[in-house]
């Protein structure tokens, strides 16, 4: 058997987790600042955004978690041919244990049958890993911390939906998304970030919806129909008036990102991943032993 290429990600992954948990990406912070300036001065909406912004800078300064729910750790690892995914998992697991000891992460992995917390964020399916082999000769590790409150308001809808008069088309997609955001109210810690997938089976749909959450806030969808729907949904979800924390206000959603997958003729799913304002993601690339952190 050929030996795999040697790499030790442990220390770099610890730093990646620290950054993800304690420093909110700049594009998300900027979007929150713009939201703050849009709200009426003195309103509960503007006050809560001011607290959020104050909290973000305090967390970065003190290197403490932006939010105490440090969420599910979702890793996407892009790697060139020759590396062992099993050893990368071991290394990142060790980094996860250390990050929990440093209180960058809250112990967040609970056994579903016994109710026991593993205490170190490791468990069946925790952390979550997705590996992608690619042609580039560097390793890219992307991490998203997805909090529970926002996970609980995610929804997977089926078209057609007679209650909403939503058909199997983009207007039907628009309707189920609006209805889902209405149902969520402030409970996912609005203002939120939406990742949406049209099509796929149930598993692939949610997976792709969550991958959209890694996209920069201000990128433009290369598919014109989807770009248009993203813009329209951003406008209309905010017209619902739910506002930050559900106190009422002009900003309910900060950005909308949509993907499309092939589906079976018999099914038409719309998977909606809601990420709270604490959209904690971080990237690192490793090339010739040198680590560079982004965002």
């Amino acid at each position: 058997m050929p030996t795999p290429r040697a790499i030790d990600l442990e220390d770099a992954a610890l730093e990646l987790i620290r950054r993800a948990s304690t420093v909110l990406p700049e594009d998300v912070t900027d979007a929150l600042k713009r939201a703050h300036d849009r709200e009426e001065s003195g309103s509960a909406a503007q006050q809560s955004l001011a607290s959020i912004l104050q909290n973000i800078s305090m967390a970065a300064e003190a290197s403490t978690p932006v939010c105490q729910d440090t969420g599910t750790l979702i890793f996407h690892v892009y790697y060139p041919f020759g590396y062992s995914t099993a050893s990368m998992i071991n290394q990142i697991n060790r980094a996860t244990i250390r990050a929990t000891e440093h209180a960058y992460l809250r112990p967040n992995a609970v056994h579903s049958l016994t109710g026991k917390n593993s205490g170190n964020n490791l468990g069946a399916g925790a952390p979550q890993f997705h590996f992608h082999e690619w042609e580039t000769d560097e390793i890219l590790v992307r991490l998203l911390l997805k909090g529970g409150g926002s996970e609980n308001v995610c929804a997977q809808c089926k078209l057609p939906d007679t209650r909403l008069k939503a058909g199997r088309n983009l207007d039907g997609v628009r309707k189920v998304v609006l209805d889902t955001i209405f149902a969520a109210q402030g409970m996912g810690c609005a203002p939120g970030i939406l990742g949406i997938c049209i099509g796929g089976d149930r598993g692939a749909g949610y997976m792709s919806a969550k991958e959209q959450l890694f996209r920069p806030m201000n990128d433009r969808n290369p598919v014109p129909e989807l770009a248009e729907l993203e813009e329209r949904l951003l406008k209309e979800t905010n017209e619902l008036g739910i506002g930050p924390m559900g106190f009422g206000g002009k900003t309910t959603i900060l950005s909308v990102k949509i993907s499309a997958l092939h589906r079976l003729p018999a099914s038409f799913f719309v998977s909606i991943a809601y990420l709270c304002w604490a959209g904690r993601r971080a990237d690192m690339t490793i090339k010739n032993g040198e680590v560079v952190y982004h965002a």
């Binding site: 909290n55 403490t64 978690p65 932006v66 105490q68 809250r106 917390n117 402030g186 924390m245």
Partner: peptide
């Protein structure tokens, strides 16, 4: 209604942890 996610800000307002009961439930619980 506290500000959801404003974890560090709120932690700063906690001047003292006086005691803990039922730690066997796990830290969050």
């Amino acid at each position: 209604h506290a500000i959801g996610g404003a974890a560090t800000l709120i932690a700063r307002s906690v001047t003292q942890v006086e005691s803990v009961y039922k730690l066997e439930f796990g830290v969050p619980e």
